[in-house]
Write a protein that binds this DNA or RNA. Structure first.
Length: 439
RNA sequence: UCGGCGGUAGCUCAGUGGUAGAGCGAUCGGCUGUUAACCGAUUGGUCGUAGGUUCGAAUCCUACCCGCCGAGCCA
């Protein structure tokens, strides 16, 4: 144990300490050694650096311990920061002393290929590795970006409940919670209705929380538990709502390009669609125009007017552009009950879905909400929804009701697109799926 | 729920009726510039489960279990 009073330096800050003696606390992602020199690959959560132990520079016992350490051993390293062009980050650590804090003890995730199931059974360890590390760092950049964007625009974060008395849309499968045999609650699949109450109280609000869908979907675009962002704004109309969604998504793309360049490189992410997205200017197709495009250019994807889109239709439409595209003005009968119809076309809803490019599907769905009491009550009846459960929601239209709009953005869908993930599970620390509850 | 594919060593896989294999990992040794290092040795198996066909089954048949990908539904 060498006396080393200074506080440890994080690896990401090492380029500012070239020539200095520092301490780094971390773990080993790998070790290579020969008879007289050892290379320790070190990570500390902030970055990666190679530490070089030369037999000629250190005591015999230090060199022996450097040769004996294993993958994921926890180590405290003392050494000098050296600029080195061979190093990916530009710096290396020349080791003067090494404390082995704990052994890696035959770490199971070896630096070779592994299957999805093997890695996600060990997700508690897997999150230490480069690719998950980059994914989850970008998740953090986006989450902070969302809060910054809304707060800069005068929004208030307004938390919605996770236990709900009923479904927001009346259709989706919900997870039931038994309340001691006395009542049934459901896990939230949206906070929108509560956000609408918030919009009338604070003008501009957004929710940011987990949501749950009990759909037996087993595709790369589905999780049982995912995070959703739902802004809701009083006095905002349908067109303004699309402007807001576009501003948010283009802001986030720009922020990831600026703040997560190294992470995008680790993921080998092509930046073309992100760079286009950051400039804004998203195309806006009406549902009718989208149907025409499908029928004229979509081949097998031809679809009669009035049908909802499937995943292949979304992929086709998304691939028409280098940045997201809005599909607006859908027939009201294939959309939820609360959407405001156009005055001159009551059969069409003032709503829009935002489709991501590159096959990542719908990332935003939003609309202007019905603010007229009588119309909302009629819609609830048409959809056979339980009137008692929606009484408070209807009551909002009785006291100073104004036009208002909002949308929901799926965090994981957005992140999967930003990062180029093959599956949503890659952008969540501990994904929850039909076949995945552990760890 | 439906469709396609798959389950063999700790991991990734090869093996289509005749003695259970490779690479990596792990262990030991060698190597002063390695980037998934390299070289030598050692270690390693209920071939998803149950039943059937056969002189003989990882291999053929039946049922079931589990996983992956997709559809529907959705973000």
């Amino acid at each position: 144990m060498t006396a080393q009073p200074e506080a440890p330096i994080r690896i990401e800050a090492l380029p500012q300490h070239v020539g200095q003696d520092v301490t780094v606390e971390g773990w080993l992602t790998g070790v290579r050694s020969s008879g007289k020199i050892a290379f320790l690959q070190v990570r500390d959560g902030s970055g990666f650096v190679q530490a070089v132990v030369a037999a000629s520079d250190v005591s015999e016992s230090t060199f022996e311990s450097a040769r004996a350490v294993d993958q994921e051993a926890a180590v405290r390293i003392h050494g000098q920061v050296k600029a080195d062009e061979r190093a990916p980050s530009g710096v290396e650590l020349t080791v003067t002393a090494l404390d082995v804090v704990a052994s890696g003890n035959t770490y199971p995730i070896t630096p070779k290929e592994h299957g999805v199931d093997f890695l996600f059974d060990r997700r508690h360890l897997h999150v230490r590795h480069r690719r998950p590390w980059a994914m989850l760092r970008i998740r953090d950049v986006v989450e902070r970006g969302i809060h910054d964007f809304f707060h800069e625009q005068g929004f208030l974060r307004f938390d919605s409940p996770l236990f709900m008395p009923t479904s927001v849309e009346g259709t989706t499968d919900l997870f039931e919670i038994d309340l001691f045999g006395e009542d049934t609650a459901y896990l939230a699949q949206s906070g929108q209705l509560y956000a609408e109450a918030g919009a009338m109280a604070f003008g501009k609000v957004y929710t940011f929380g987990p949501t749950f869908r009990a759909e037996k979907s087993k595709t790369r675009r589905h999780l049982l538990e995912f995070w959703m962002i739902e802004p809701e704004v009083a006095y905002l109309d349908h067109a303004g709502n699309m402007d807001l969604a576009e501003a948010l998504v283009s802001y986030l793309a720009g922020r990831v390009l600026r703040e997560a360049d190294a992470e995008l490189s680790i993921l080998e992410r092509d930046r073309t669609t992100l760079e286009a997205t950051a400039k804004g200017g998203f195309a806006r197709l009406t549902y009718a125009e989208a149907i025409d495009r499908l029928n004229e250019e979509g081949g097998d994807l031809a679809l009669p007017y009035g049908e909802d889109f499937g995943a292949p239709h979304e992929t086709f439409l998304g691939d028409l552009y280098d940045r997201p595209v809005f599909i607006e003005a859908w027939p009201t009968n294939i959309k939820p009950f609360y959407m405001q119809p156009f005055d001159d076309h009551p059969e069409l809803a003032k709503c829009a879905d935002m489709i991501a490019p590159e096959g990542y599907g719908e990332i935003v769905g939003g609309s202007e909400r019905i603010h007229d009491l009588a119309l909302l009550e009629a819609r609830i009846k048409e959809h056979n929804l339980p009137q008692e459960a929606f009484a408070w929601y209807v009551d909002l239209r009785r006291h100073g009701s104004v036009p208002h709009s909002g949308f929901g953005m799926g965090l994981e869908r957005l992140l999967a697109w930003f990062t180029g993930a093959k599956h949503l599970r890659e952008v969540v620390p501990f994904p929850r799926m039909l076949t995945r509850m552990y760890p």
